[in-house]
Design a protein around this nucleic acid. Structure first.
Lengths: 366, 366
DNA sequence: CTGAAAGCGCTAACAG
DNA sequence: CTGTTAGCGCTTTCAG
């Protein structure tokens, strides 16, 4: 009897009998049985692997379709682990809700797609908390590599790298200089922004400093100081205030600047978010930009050009950053020995728009 | 000769010998061997499953740590498939780069975390293209369910649902009304915005229509028309222009409105992105908001309050939307029969800020 | 061109 | 408390 039901897959008991528990997805075996062949044949047919006659393949495909078969990704991956094949998916760790990150993630998305891969984004949990284990494990086993955009917790981050996951960092932190990275030329951009302001005639230039952990923030500060010195201008501690690359802290920071006995005639903001916030603060104080105070940002997020007054800023080559990060990751994965210590810096560009002008009443260089 | 090199893995080269190929991650067996116990014991020890003496457990943990053991997520998942346990990971499909989506995704992120789960975001590829197979499969097998925020291609989307993946839609499309969904009360919000304008004395109100596929866009238009009627105002076709919920198309749309023989005194924009763009366009035309023209948005994305002139808008309860979506997904997964047809609509709220005022020279209702 | 055997790394279910 | 036996669903040998 049992024999029969096994050998016999032809006509009988379909309404119930042999079916798997409800909700279970059909497996290779199910459709093989229905087609009257082995699982291997089905596998070969479905994956276009050859060794199957054309009509058989067509027939199998048809059955698979109507049964709603989808290959079990997990099983496939486990099986493939022997031959070490790729999944075609790249993991991205980022905080997607800030404008800068958004631009970077979009760029990576495009680059990944150009390479015929795909990506999954993991948005970090609260600062200080480490990754939940399951996501970490998933990342460890389900993706070909990870691109991290400003990780909060570098511990897990190093852990991933130690476990052998190819990994590249965009806009690195102090703690991640030991990993391959991609970043825009923050120092060069800062110098460029500062020289622009100085050429316009500004002598009193403030700086809205960014998140200190980020190398880019440090580099921009360095550029600020160096150009000041190069122009023979003194560094004034009261002109450098923390704004953490965020709009909220930029507001009181700017107010503090305006309240100074000798307020600046220009502000170089560490990034666009703080620049936009600074402008809004200045205007609320009854002054205008750029007539009373010039402002330069950094990043050129899409918002910068959409603002009522186009923001003069330093453009980050987002598309190039994304492409470089993906390429670096692929090289790394391919075993390129030199890739592991590669740090790519991409050139930036000054975009002059409407928030910078010569300081008030300054016809001539004094 | 060749023979020799083949056979010769025996004694000679063995700085190592028994070790697995370099780069391979240690498995349960490896650490079991090192500890002199069985794989099961290690598994039990590492997963705190009981049945292991305390010092043995400690010893095993130590060995695992130094060997850099991490549990193979894929293998675990495959094994678990029998008992149908959860992964604790929720998939989110969205286009993360628009402000609205960003807010929604952030909100979902928070809600997911409150539930002790985590999420992975898949950002959609180009319109019209279907999901790449591997991501689809991954989603199918690696997550407990999927929350979709405005899918582009609903075909794959339905496919996922058909394959038995619990799924909820945020801000649904016409094509997805058959799936459980969560949305803000667009109709109510639109009515609210319109009444606000009318109470202020406006009689000539234009509408920047949103992306037509989205139910929310249709509902806002319906609210616009209904309130017009309710106030005894005529519907004027030239006052309703397409802006697709995006900043770029909103610009020419607004210019068209300003160029009308009888331009509106107020604009109700389908969302904040188009509202902000409209304001910028109006100001560039030498007019001012709200003195010459009032503008109301919809969404209350964080940008709305940061604008130089705070945007009057309809606030979406993002946090509630995220929480509701996650809860609905969990209910669905838990098998709640009624959840499959649940459509949740959340109340919205008018936020009066600085972009609305009575129309110029309108002291009295004429 | 198709079938049988073995195994990827892990865990549930019973033995000892 | 520890060890053994099976098997998740798929793929890579290697025969037929």
């Amino acid at each position: 009897m049992t024999e029969e039901s096994t050998s016999r897959d032809a006509a009988a008991a379909p309404p119930s009998g042999k079916e798997r528990r409800a909700g279970a997805r059909p497996t290779l075996a199910d459709i093989a049985q229905a087609a009257g062949v082995t699982r291997m044949t089905v596998s070969n047919a479905l994956n276009g692997r050859g060794g199957v006659s054309d009509d058989m393949r067509e027939r199998i495909r048809e059955i698979a379709r109507e049964k709603g078969y989808v290959t079990n990704w997990v099983a496939k991956k486990l099986s493939d682990s022997r031959s070490g094949s790729e999944t075609g998916i790249i993991g991205v760790i980022a905080e997607i809700h800030t404008p800068f990150m958004g631009e970077v993630v979009s760029a990576i998305s495009g680059a990944v797609r150009d390479q015929g891969r795909d990506m999954l984004v993991y948005s970090l949990p609260d600062p200080g908390k480490s990754f939940p284990g399951n996501v970490l494990d998933l990342l460890l086993h389900a993706v070909d590599g990870v691109i991290a955009v400003i990780p909060r917790d570098t511990r897990d981050f190093h852990m991933l790298a130690a476990a052998g996951v190819p990994m590249v960092v965009v806009d690195p932190l102090k703690e991640t200089i030991d990993m391959p990275s991609v970043a825009a030329d923050s120092y060069g951009g800062a110098c460029c922004a500062m020289r622009h302001l100085i050429e316009l005639g500004h002598r009193k230039i403030a700086f809205l400093a960014g998140e200190a952990r980020r190398l880019s923030a440090q580099e921009r500060l360095r550029g600020y100081r160096d150009v000041l010195r190069e122009a023979g201008l003194a560094y004034r501690a009261e002109y450098v205030v923390e704004a953490g690359f965020l709009p909220e802290p930029a507001r009181p920071a700017t107010e503090g600047l305006l309240a100074l006995d000798d307020p600046p005639t220009a502000i170089f903001a560490g990034n666009d978010a703080s620049a936009l916030s600074a402008i809004s603060t200045i205007e609320q104080a009854g002054l205008s930009v750029p007539e009373d105070i010039s402002v330069v940002g950094f990043d050129d997020v899409s918002l910068a050009s959409q603002a009522r007054r186009g923001l003069t800023t330093i453009r980050q080559p987002f598309a190039d950053i994304g492409a470089a990060a993906v390429q670096l990751l692929l090289d790394l994965r391919a075993g390129d020995p030199e890739a592991a210590t590669r740090h790519i810096t991409l050139p930036v560009e000054l975009i002059r728009r409407e928030t910078t002008a010569p300081p008030r009443g300054d016809g001539l260089r004094r």
